[in-house]
Amino acid sequence: MTQPKRYLNIVSEMRDMIREQNIRPGDRIPSERELAEKLAVGRSTIREALRSLELLGLIETRRGEGTFLTDPGKHRLVELLATFILQDTKTLEDIRETMCIHETAAIQAICSSEAWKLPVWESLRERLDGHEFIREDFVRELMVLSGNRLSLKIWFLLKQYGGNPYDGEASLEEKAILKNILLAIEQQDGPTAIREFKTWSSVLIKGENA
């Protein structure tokens, strides 16, 4: 198992390193060993961070060659379609509903697997007790830990091109709900975790429509 805080911060550190070294789409990124040495963390931590980035479609691994930064231009067709399709309110509602389907399925998958044992949950709870907590970090962690690569990619595109309901920082009221979700996940209580998640989602929607 990885150290909780390092696991949550490592992706951001890797992103900064890629920017500083001017690694461009299509370029090879440093190996696991090189990243572990540069960032002073264990290779298991690096491996989990790389897996998260690959699930998001930001990097790709080529057998026998290494790991490469992906070309964002591959998503231009989706952007073009989004310009014409994602215009009316009903479509936006359908997108939010579809996102929720994937999110609640991720929660159920986590509660039905060994993922609930990972140290990331305790780290998330510590961050919720802090001053700032970004909503999207919480949901993205759920999608990654569900282990469903296709579901994660669909969610990521819906969020990116259909409006991001998780933009911004969580309020005190939201943090209390998120802690309830974490507790239910740790107890493998999928129905309660999903019910609390939907409660949180409704809070966000009310805020948007206020």
Results as ranks from 00 to 15, higher is better:
P165N: 01
L35D: 02
D16A: 09
T199V: 07
A170F: 04
R195Y: 05
L145N: 12
T91D: 08
R76E: 13
H131R: 09
R76G: 02
P30L: 00
F197S: 06
I59C: 04
E20I: 06
V11Y: 04
G190N: 06
R43Q: 14
F84Q: 13
S44C: 05
S171D: 03
T61P: 06
L158G: 06
E208P: 00
W116C: 05
L92Y: 04
L172W: 07
R63Y: 10
E65A: 14
R6S: 12
T2R: 13
N164W: 01
E122M: 02
A106P: 12
S201P: 00
M99I: 08
W200V: 00
L142F: 05
W200G: 11
V120D: 04
G26E: 02
P119A: 00
K38Y: 07
E20V: 12
T70F: 06
R127F: 01
V120Y: 02
P165D: 04
I10W: 05
R33H: 11
D167Y: 09
R62H: 09
G162M: 08
A115V: 01
E34S: 14
R140F: 10
E186H: 13
Q3C: 08
R15Y: 09
R24N: 08
I23Y: 09
A36T: 02
G168L: 00
S201V: 10
R63W: 04
P4D: 03
R62Q: 15
A170T: 07
D189P: 09
D94V: 08
L55N: 13
W116M: 05
A184T: 03
L53A: 08
T98L: 13
R51F: 07
G26R: 00
T45R: 09
R33D: 13
C111W: 01
L69G: 12
A49R: 02
K5D: 10
I46S: 11
L56N: 12
L8Y: 07
T192P: 02
E65S: 12
S31N: 11
R135F: 01
L53N: 08
M14Y: 02
P165K: 05
K175I: 03
K74T: 12
T61I: 07
E136T: 04
E174N: 06
S151E: 12
N9D: 15
A170W: 06
A170E: 05
L178E: 03
R33A: 14
M1P: 14
D189N: 15
H102D: 11
G162P: 12
G162H: 09
V78T: 13
V144C: 03
A115P: 04
E141F: 00
R149V: 12
R135Q: 14
K179D: 11
E208Q: 15
K175F: 03
S52E: 11
E37R: 11
I154S: 00
E79Y: 10
T67G: 14
L182F: 04
P4S: 08
A40Y: 00
S146W: 05
S44F: 01
R43K: 11
T192I: 09
G162D: 01
M17Q: 07
E126A: 11
R19G: 06
